[in-house]
């Protein structure tokens, strides 16, 4: 039996939270293994619910760009987008104890983000676009909206180009086994298990090689990043 319960948050937003039979949910969840990403997010949410704000910070770092891209489909101004993203995460933190794990964390966050953006537009007298039919995957890959609206100066463009060149050069100069593992992950998107099978080595070795590759590249990027931070 599923009942709809309207949960009113501090900011008087209304989130329709379906309340389901928890035993049935547990049984279903046991039958269908959840993805590693969802299990990781769930663990971070559990820690946040126990008072660990750093765990919530990891979720913010993980999803703020995705949410940024999502909101940019509805709002043009970058500073407004950032305000909406910030408000969305604050609302998510305030409502974190209501998160039951029935859906993926990002799906829940996505709903909060959409509602926050809609309310923002309504408060400014603007009509929000219908977002019901939006495909989340389409939004995740949709960078053009930001590319068109972003204001890049010649200086930042030059800095970006330098960073890109440094990363590519550093990757090319990696030892072969590190380079192969790193590129299979970053460019082809293979899982550690798949890379382990392709390279004929344990998953732990793959994990170590990818980390060492990133570490080596980051070391070469360090001076440039420090310079960039001063300018951006």
């Amino acid at each position: 039996m599923i009942n709809l319960l309207k949960v009113v948050s501090k900011s008087s937003e209304v989130y329709n939270a379906p309340i389901v039979n928890t035993e049935a949910v547990k049984i279903n969840m046991e039958a269908r293994p959840i993805s590693p990403e969802r299990a990781i997010d769930q663990k971070l949410v559990e820690k946040a619910q126990k008072g660990d704000k750093q765990a919530f910070g990891i979720l913010v770092e993980k999803y703020q760009l995705k949410l940024n891209r999502l909101i940019s489909r509805m709002v043009r101004d970058q500073s407004e987008i950032e305000d909406i993203v910030q408000d969305s995460f604050i609302k998510a933190y305030r409502a974190i104890n209501n998160f039951r794990g029935d859906s993926a964390f990002y799906t829940w966050l996505y709903r909060i983000g959409i509602n926050t953006a809609k309310n923002h537009l309504v408060s400014l007298g603007r009509r929000p676009k219908a977002m019901d039919a939006v495909d989340i995957e389409e939004i995740e890959n949709f960078q053009d909206a930001q590319d068109l609206r972003s204001v890049e100066t010649p200086e930042t463009t030059m800095m970006n180009n330098q960073i890109t060149a440094t990363v590519n050069n550093a990757a090319e100069s990696l030892p072969d086994e590190l380079k192969q593992a790193f590129k299979l992950r970053e460019m082809d998107g293979h899982s550690y298990e798949e890379i382990a099978e392709m390279m004929g080595c344990p998953i732990g070795t793959v994990r170590s090689r990818i980390f060492r590759a990133r570490d080596a590249i980051a070391e070469k990027l360090k001076p440039l990043i420090e310079e960039t931070n001063k300018r951006w």
């Binding site: 949410v45 008072g51 974190i96 039951r100 794990g101 960078q143 970006n160 460019m187």
Partner: peptide, 30 residues
């Protein structure tokens, strides 16, 4: 590496500064 536009913002820091001012949440459903 993927040839994407580099997006750099300090939004996470701003968000966490705001979260730090929020009362700590305890004992959630999970």
């Amino acid at each position: 590496i993927q040839g994407k536009r580099l997006s750099k913002n300090n939004l996470t820091d701003k968000i966490m500064a705001a979260i730090d001012k929020e009362p700590t949440q305890l004992s959630g459903f999970l």
